[in-house]
Design a protein around this nucleic acid. Structure first.
Lengths: 188, 188
DNA sequence: CTCGTCGATGACACGTCGTGCCATCATCGC
DNA sequence: GCGATGATGGCACGACGTGTCATCGACGAG
């Protein structure tokens, strides 16, 4: 596990996750991470833009969202598409490994710097959804609002799914949140 | 304008804003800001937690939102309260000084670090609205969704208000966004 | 088999950020 | 006057993140 051992990026992620859980994000230095991964500090910053990025999965979710928006049939109405997209992305990434997600979430919530990055990541997703909806014929104002609302649903669904005692399908939670927000006949 | 000249915080904010506009956020160092303000680097970090915070108005909006939620009559339904609260906060803070807001907004959007902090600030507002709605009898899921939706409306309204050629009342924009999101009979 | 290219890594220097600690100075109450 | 209080200056320090060049392994051409 030295200089040319494959999987350097994965080793860094693993080492960082362990250290963050063990001693917290702030108390962990980049040299500590790279030492455990058998690499150097400089290499860390080649794989990740900063110390926080090692904790997030890059653009995985926005990219998946972009693919969904591009590949879906043009005649699917945006609300239905968002509803299905939320279910699918959420299920693929979260379902079945709630404990792992919960551990990561706890580290994030405990560290303001990571909460900030998390908020940025959600904003990035909005930045993908908005033009995607525009391209599907939604007017600009509606696209902006729908994109933000969809990400809000995903966020609330995630926290809600993690807070429940019994584990149910993540998709069911997103559906419930989605319907709750978009059926204002009785929103309160 | 030296050591005990009053308004140190304001001078720092002013100097920082000027320098950020002149040469960008990243290219501006804290010593540059403090030199222009006639103070030292150490004092800067006593007034602001970090370099980004000098650009934002602390907890002003969340605090105003908290007051509104606490002082409003208990029989006002949450949707109406949010609608009026958005109008009021937005109007008080933004109306009539669109150019100033636009300049700040451009600096923020040009700098990823500031966009991130901006997203965090919006999340802080959600963190105030959510318990406020809970205290008013909204169920937890609805409170979380409404809080996020309200902040989304404020955000979209701000960008929309800044993008328009003719300046109209900010409150009118928030109302339009609010109705657009919460009237899904024709949301698309 | 040797060589040369290419990409990933190591190594070092450097500027900036942010904090802990203590000294210093002005203001206010007595 | 004089002490308490609060804001500032000054300094050292660790950590973060980047620029730059050297080094090493993999791979294909000959």
């Amino acid at each position: 596990m030295g200089r040319w051992t494959p999987g350097a990026r994965g080793r860094l992620e693993q080492a960082a996750l362990e250290l963050f859980v063990e001693q917290g994000f702030a108390a962990t230095t980049v040299p500590q991470i790279t030492e455990r991964a058998g690499l150097t500090t400089r290499t860390f910053f080649r794989h990740f833009a900063d110390k926080r990025e090692v904790f997030f999965d890059g653009d995985a979710i926005p990219q998946a969202a972009r693919r969904l928006l591009e590949q879906a049939p043009a005649d699917v109405d945006p609300l239905t598409l968002l509803r299905h997209g939320l279910r699918r992305v959420g299920v693929e990434r979260f379902d079945g490994r709630r404990e792992e997600v919960r551990r990561r979430r706890e580290v994030i919530l405990a560290e303001p710097a990571l909460r900030e990055r998390d908020a940025q990541k959600r904003d990035d997703l909005v930045g993908v959804l908005r033009p995607g909806l525009l391209a599907r014929g939604v007017d600009p104002l509606g696209a902006a609002l729908l994109a933000e609302a969809a990400v809000a649903v995903l966020h609330v669904a995630l926290e809600s799914w993690l807070a429940e005692t019994a584990e149910r399908s993540f998709g069911d939670v997103t559906d419930a949140c989605f319907d709750r927000l978009f059926v204002p006949a009785a929103p309160v």
